[in-house]
Amino acid sequence: MTHMPIPSAVPSRAELIDHLVRTRAAGDVATPREINLSHYRSLADGDRHFWFGLELGDRWTDEGDVLAVMAERCGVNGDPQHRSGQDTIAPELTVGALERMAAVLRKAAEAQARVLFATGHPGALLEVLSATASALHAAGCEIVDIPDGLHVNDENVVQVCDVAMLERAARLRHTHSPAPMEATLDGMVRAGQPLPDLVVADHGWAGYAGQRGIDTVAYADCNDPALFLGELEGTIEVVVPLDDHISNPRFYAPMTAYLLDRAGLTAQF
């Protein structure tokens, strides 16, 4: 296992950028260029698996246009002739998006908002989202409890450490699907619960919430273009670009500390 020092204090902007690059949460990331371009092409070809619950219509049918947005908002190599090998996430864009997300979280805390957290990456982002939920709860926000008994096919929608996710046979599930968020929000309506004021999520959990008209902030990898298109179009408020499954989830801790500090929240680890 790779051992790397993890700052215990809130890092400066420069320190966080350095940490993101060293841990490959940004900079030269693990996702190959071939995978990125394949996903951009699939989205442009209308494959809804890659739309993450957003309704993109016929606005993004050119793979080159998708690549241009990803270069601008995520920091991938913008050269359409670069077809294989290394690709990148610009760490400055990651930190800038964290700062914009922090402003949204600060506003939510001031408004005592009702906030729903969810992830399709429970093996990586659970602690990031759970710590953020704890910090907002300490600031007076209501962290939304999802209804019991929600299902998507043979999988259950559960809540662990204040974060909604999929579970099957006692295993937390990785998913890109918008169906779990659809089931959650529909279940809240059936139960007479008001919908959240804010959703903090990723993958289809975030895309569907934004499409439903709920203020949404998200994390997304360089091979997940839909959420960045949603941000451009205003359906998603903020998208933070990062490798969403690095080797050690603890390496996200400085990023979370930076986010919460900029939001004026106390880190809850």
Rank of each mutant, 00 (worst) to 15 (best):
210 G>S: 09
244 D>C: 07
8 S>G: 14
141 C>F: 14
50 F>H: 11
81 Q>R: 15
162 D>W: 13
93 L>K: 14
129 L>P: 02
122 P>A: 03
261 D>M: 02
168 R>D: 00
62 D>I: 09
178 P>Y: 10
111 A>Y: 08
2 T>N: 10
166 L>T: 00
262 R>P: 04
194 P>S: 14
170 A>W: 14
112 Q>F: 12
101 M>S: 04
140 G>V: 00
246 I>V: 12
18 D>K: 12
112 Q>M: 11
242 L>G: 04
19 H>K: 06
37 L>P: 09
95 V>A: 05
111 A>L: 07
245 H>L: 13
59 R>E: 10
106 R>F: 06
15 E>T: 08
67 L>K: 04
125 L>C: 01
256 T>C: 11
4 M>E: 12
267 A>W: 15
104 V>E: 09
250 R>A: 15
97 A>Q: 04
204 G>Q: 05
68 A>Q: 04
101 M>G: 03
41 R>G: 12
43 L>Y: 12
96 G>I: 03
106 R>S: 06
215 D>T: 15
113 A>N: 07
255 M>I: 04
220 A>N: 05
157 V>S: 03
109 A>E: 01
183 A>T: 07
100 R>K: 15
190 R>S: 11
58 D>P: 01
142 E>C: 12
207 G>I: 07
175 T>V: 01
203 H>N: 13
129 L>N: 01
256 T>H: 00
167 E>G: 06
157 V>H: 07
258 Y>C: 09
201 A>M: 05
182 E>N: 14
221 D>W: 02
170 A>T: 11
101 M>F: 06
252 Y>T: 03
105 L>N: 03
67 L>D: 09
23 T>H: 13
45 D>R: 12
184 T>L: 10
204 G>K: 10
191 A>E: 10
252 Y>L: 09
227 L>E: 05
143 I>G: 00
102 A>M: 02
226 A>C: 09
3 H>V: 13
168 R>V: 04
108 A>E: 13
261 D>E: 15
55 E>Y: 14
254 P>R: 07
237 E>T: 13
140 G>P: 00
100 R>L: 13
182 E>P: 12
94 T>D: 08
90 A>M: 08
136 L>H: 00
224 D>I: 12
189 V>L: 12
75 G>A: 04
225 P>S: 03
44 A>R: 07
61 T>R: 15
102 A>S: 04
193 Q>Y: 13
198 L>H: 03
256 T>K: 03
117 F>T: 02
4 M>T: 15
261 D>A: 15
249 P>Y: 00
266 T>W: 12
84 S>D: 09
162 D>V: 04
148 D>V: 12
122 P>H: 06
255 M>L: 08
162 D>K: 15
195 L>K: 08
51 W>K: 06
208 Y>D: 08
75 G>C: 11
202 D>S: 09
184 T>F: 03
77 N>S: 08
104 V>F: 05
65 D>M: 05
155 E>G: 02
128 V>T: 15
